[in-house]
């Protein structure tokens, strides 16, 4: 067991030297979470635009469901994806278990409701303001959705960042469906979990430092986006 100061020093040295294992883990983390974010954003924004501008029956139920799913426990999502992808499961033939794709699927399930619910709220607020104007223009539904997504761009970027923050920091789901296999499915959070349990605090702490930097960068971006939006009166 190393002491804290020792571990921190080693961690900083690892980061500074650009250690190849460390870089590989960071790269995979970003690849998995950014891909999940891309898919979730496409799904979530579409859901948001659809729910916000429709008046169909069951709309309220969908909004409640989305909100409820925002708090899905990652381990449960991991378990469900595991059951589907395991050899005996309905999607076992895809052989995706313990691959980065499985991790992307799990994170997508985890953050799509977050992006969907939050973007529904954002788009709904803008639509309420624009509705008469858009009706007056006799716009197609497609054009309405496009205009709302564009005009909500700052707020929706913030929503996407919230989703990304959740994905990149998550460990419960991906450790189950990814398995934390070295050089294959090891990402920052799963590596931290493993290295900590092994007692190798230096690598764990190096990854922890990176995660904190990522998290701070996300929050700084959110603040900067909000300030920019306010300055342009686009908020």
């Amino acid at each position: 067991m190393q002491d804290f100061g020792n571990a921190l020093e080693l961690a900083i040295r690892l980061v500074a030297s650009g250690d190849s294992d460390l870089m590989e883990i960071i790269a995979l983390s970003l690849r998995v979470s950014l891909t999940a974010l891309l898919v979730s954003a496409i799904l979530g924004f579409s859901i948001g635009a659809l729910v916000a501008t429709s008046t169909f029956k069951g709309r309220g139920a969908i909004k409640i469901l989305l909100s409820a799913l925002m708090g899905l426990p990652p381990v449960v999502v991991g378990l469900i994806v595991y059951i589907f992808l395991s050899n005996a499961g309905p999607l076992g033939w895809t052989q995706l278990l313990y691959t980065p794709t499985a991790m992307i699927i799990a994170q997508t399930l985890l953050i799509t409701p977050i992006i969907g619910a939050l973007s529904t709220q954002v788009i709904e607020d803008i639509y309420l303001e624009y509705k008469d104007f858009f009706t007056s223009l006799a716009m197609s539904r497609r054009a309405v959705a496009g205009a709302l997504l564009w005009d909500g761009r700052y707020s929706l970027l913030t929503v996407a960042l919230a989703g990304f923050g959740r994905a990149i920091a998550e460990v419960g789901a991906i450790i189950i469906v990814g398995g934390n296999i070295n050089h294959l499915t090891r990402v920052m959070t799963t590596a931290i979990a493993l290295e900590t349990s092994k007692g190798d605090l230096a690598l764990a702490m190096a990854l922890g430092l990176i995660l904190i930097v990522v998290s701070l960068a996300i929050n700084a971006s959110v603040i900067a986006l909000n300030l920019t939006a306010k300055r342009y009166a686009y908020a």
């Binding site: 624009y130 104007f133 761009r153």
Partner: peptide, 20 residues
């Protein structure tokens, strides 16, 4: 109809301006 409405335009009391 949409066709009739497209040949008209309306200016509202409180202008609805896009975030652009």
């Amino acid at each position: 109809s949409d066709d009739v409405r497209r040949r008209q335009a309306m200016v509202f009391q409180r202008p609805v301006l896009l975030r652009r």
